[in-house]
Design a binder for these strands. Structure first.
Length: 417
RNA sequence: GUGAAUGUAGCUCAAGCGGUAAGAGCGCUGGACUGUGGCUCCAGAGGUUGGGGGUUCGAGUCCCCUCAUUCACCCCA
């Protein structure tokens, strides 16, 4: 409640009113259609998971786990967390149900609400929606390119222009050891001049220092992962670029791109758009070859991404109008109102969207309502019509009106075209 | 978590240096047109100016606190 003692929505949550809901539905339909064209199967995730799942898989040292999770204890004393991202639950489901046994490559997508307790601002909410895609079982750069292309297809079909794709490779655990050694060597002499966060990261997660905005001037000459990646990773990255070229996908290699979650290996990428302000990332993802094994499964390569739907919505062109209803029934007296009420039900049964006044309003007001509802037809029933067993059928756009027998079949015949 | 800006009708916004029932447009309701929507005209409803405290003869306006929103930092979708 606010201080005016009225109920309002919780900070960081959003109410979606009918006009905007039309946009959301369209977005969801386009996501589903495209992901299924790519043969990804829909998964529906629980709203909350054991806190351990995220602590372990997302990474103890990540910003997300340290300060953004909605964690609570249930009455059984379990520590639970509202899911802040989709990849760990998907990986858990993959393992829990032994899905590798169905086929060595499993491809999933989901459309879900996520929860992170951050200070809200443009494009950043505490409850937000994202869709994601995960391909578990393929080590090929072909799969990375396929994932990237699926996101671009969706944004394209939504009418979003001006998306930029950044890609990079952060190497595998093997080559990262050498890179981190070099990075630390470079940073050590400057350590005192770095910001507080970076001083902390130096020991916990030096990779993250690379995309620090405060210290970026001091880092222009810092080593980047690409300089140290092994032959295998190098090969993977050049294959990725080749596959993207095959698809005519335009990309920028951003050598400083790293991601905030611990499980990424090799390929990382993000989609950005300048219109979004500070939160310019529409979506991002990468390869996470170590995660499945780390979570107790067999050594299984995997790759995936997530896109912020709230942010996509900000980029979508103007809202298509809510479709109007087919028929609005106008009645002029009490007895006609009963007839109209029964007719209304028959129209709905017959597959037409239809409505009538239920507030006892004047005829003029009923017509105004019909207009507001953008009704294609109006059916008028009054004393005269009742006595003669007819109704007036008016086409709202032209104002033409004709008399039709009052049985439902005759009416349906007239309005179906 | 830190910083800045902003809170006036359902929405978008007015209200000189503090000055005497807080206004407009849109929307809503009704009427002009007593059985026909949109256009036009007329009328009406709707506000403790986010909340609390203070200064003052007097506060929407100035000060303090608080809450909310927005944008940015940070981080990410």
């Amino acid at each position: 409640m606010d201080s005016n003692n009225k109920f309002i929505n919780v900070k960081g949550t959003r109410d979606i009113l009918p006009e905007e809901a039309v946009m959301w539905r369209r977005m969801e339909e386009i996501i589903r259609k495209n992901m299924e064209n790519y043969n990804y199967k829909e998964l529906r995730l629980p709203t909350f998971e054991y806190t351990e799942l995220f602590r372990k898989s997302t990474g103890e040292d990540t910003e997300l786990v340290q300060k953004q999770m909605y964690t609570f204890q249930d009455k059984g004393g379990r520590s639970l967390t509202l899911k802040p991202e989709g990849t760990p639950p998907v990986a858990r489901m993959y393992l829990q149900y032994g899905l590798k046994n169905k086929s060595p490559l499993q491809k999933f997508y989901y459309i879900e609400r996520m929860f992170r307790q951050e200070k809200p601002q443009k494009g950043r909410y505490r409850e937000f929606s994202s869709y994601g895609a995960e391909a578990i079982g393929s080590a090929s750069a072909e799969t990375d390119a396929e994932l990237i292309k699926s996101a671009l297809d969706i944004m394209d079909e939504l009418g979003i222009k001006g998306i930029e794709l950044n890609i990079n490779s952060i190497g595998c655990p093997k080559c990262r050891v050498e890179f981190i050694k070099q990075l630390k060597k470079f940073l050590e002499p400057k350590l005192d001049s770095l910001c507080e966060d970076c001083k902390q990261r130096f020991s916990t997660n030096p990779l993250r220092i690379m995309d620090c905005k405060v210290d970026k001037d001091k880092l222009t000459d810092a080593p980047v992962p690409l300089d140290y990646i092994c032959d295998d990773c190098e090969m993977h990255f050049s294959m990725l670029k080749k596959y993207l070229d095959y698809l005519n996908v335009h990309y920028v290699v951003n050598r400083k791109l790293v991601r905030g979650l611990d499980y990424y290996t090799k390929t990382v990428f993000e989609f950005v758009h300048s219109k979004l302000g500070a939160q310019d990332e529409v979506g991002g993802g990468g390869r996470y070859d170590g995660l499945i094994k780390f979570m107790g499964g067999e050594d299984t390569p995997a790759s995936g991404y997530a896109v912020g739907m709230d942010r996509m919505l900000l980029l979508m062109p103007e809202a298509p109008k809510h479709k109007g209803i087919d028929v609005f029934v106008v009645t002029l007296d009490k007895e006609s109102d009963i007839i109209g009420w029964k007719l209304l039900s028959l129209l709905r049964e017959g597959g037409f969207s239809a409505d009538k006044d239920s507030l006892g309003r004047s005829m003029k007001a009923q017509f105004r309502e019909a207009d507001r509802q953008d009704a294609t037809w109006t059916i008028i029933i009054g004393e005269e019509e009742r006595e003669r067993g007819v109704v007036q059928l008016k086409k709202m756009e032209t104002g033409e009106q004709k008399e039709v027998p009052s049985d439902i079949e005759s009416i349906k015949e007239e309005i179906k075209c």
